[in-house]
């Protein structure tokens, strides 16, 4: 009865080679090398390498060249339009998305399940379809456009307002789908405790329910905002696409590309990518901070 050599890693079950075993805890389950290898190769080829090409192209301009390409009135106006209107649309969605989530969770009414399923339509409907449908609706001769024109003299399609409409459509599910599950899991005892302590319904909403939902609301708002900034298909049909007035950043990138200004397109794209990552980072930090405060 001789003890097996204790240092011979290969004799032990499932240790995945010497290099991997430094990074990974041993496990009897097979397939780590195969799946990890495929995952990294696929991720690298499809996502990371092309994104690196973007960075390389933008870096080719040099520091001064980059800012020259980006700090033009047209580009700045496009950023203002994209970010401003996305913010507006996300705000509209924060309000109405919250109401929709509340109604779906708290009240029972005929057709509630259908309404619930329909909320995901903007995720499923191709953006080009949404784009032409919205522009047909809000065009001066469309169902809604006509009414707005006749009653208020308001022109929506082919103005910045049209962009906001499209971005509202595209961001609609985010707030609903982030607030809904949290509201669903909210323990009813908290509101009952508030009521038994003498709070009115509004007070208990304002001081007990809303603070619990706020992180989710903010998350949904930020997701809708981030989605709006990058949106292209649903916007270009309704926007009018006037440089400096209703031209969004993604469209400007496409236009630069069509004019074979590859470096310029790469520079604007890089800036936009950096902006959305920054946004995501802030969002994650905010969530982490709120979770630490409201840890249940």
């Amino acid at each position: 009865m001789v003890a097996a050599s204790s240092t011979d890693d290969a004799a032990l079950p499932s240790s995945g080679g010497t290099v991997l075993s430094v990074l990974k805890k041993p496990s009897v389950i097979p397939g780590f090398g195969l799946t990890m290898g495929f995952t990294l190769a696929y991720l690298g080829l499809i996502v990371l390498l092309p994104l690196a090409a973007l960075a390389v192209k933008a870096a080719g301009l040099g520091w001064a060249g980059f800012w020259n390409a980006v700090l033009t009135p047209r580009v700045l106006a496009a950023f203002e339009i994209s970010f401003g209107l996305s913010l507006l649309a996300a705000a509209i969605n924060a309000v109405f998305g919250f109401v929709v989530a509340w109604v779906l969770v708290r009240y029972r009414f005929p057709g509630a399940k259908i309404v619930d399923a329909l909320v995901d339509l903007p995720f499923a409907l191709p953006t080009a379809v949404a784009g032409i449908a919205l522009s047909a609706l809000y065009a001066p001769n469309g169902w809604i456009g006509q009414l707005l024109m006749d009653w208020f003299g308001l022109k929506v399609a082919f103005t910045p307002l049209g962009i906001a409409i499209a971005l509202t459509f595209i961001g609609l599910p985010f707030v609903v789908r982030t607030v809904q599950p949290i509201l669903q899991d909210l323990p009813p005892e908290e509101e009952e405790a508030a009521a038994s302590l003498g709070a009115t319904r509004w007070q208990s909403f304002r001081r007990v329910v809303f603070p619990s939902l706020f992180p989710a609301l903010l998350t949904g708002f930020a997701l809708a905002f981030a989605r709006g900034v990058g949106e292209y298909g649903s916007v270009i049909f309704i926007a009018g696409n006037m440089p400096g007035v209703s031209e969004i950043v993604p469209l400007l990138i496409v236009i630069k590309l069509e004019q074979y200004d590859y470096a310029g397109a790469a520079a604007v794209a890089t800036l936009m990518l950096a902006a959305s990552f920054l946004l995501l980072l802030i969002l994650n930090l905010l969530q982490a901070w709120m979770r630490s405060r409201h840890a249940r």
């Binding site: 009865m1 001789v2 097996a4």
Partner: peptide, 10 residues
């Protein structure tokens, strides 16, 4: 065999 040992014999 669901866990590996660092040393010894079984």
């Amino acid at each position: 065999g669901l866990e590996s040992a660092d040393s010894g014999s079984l």
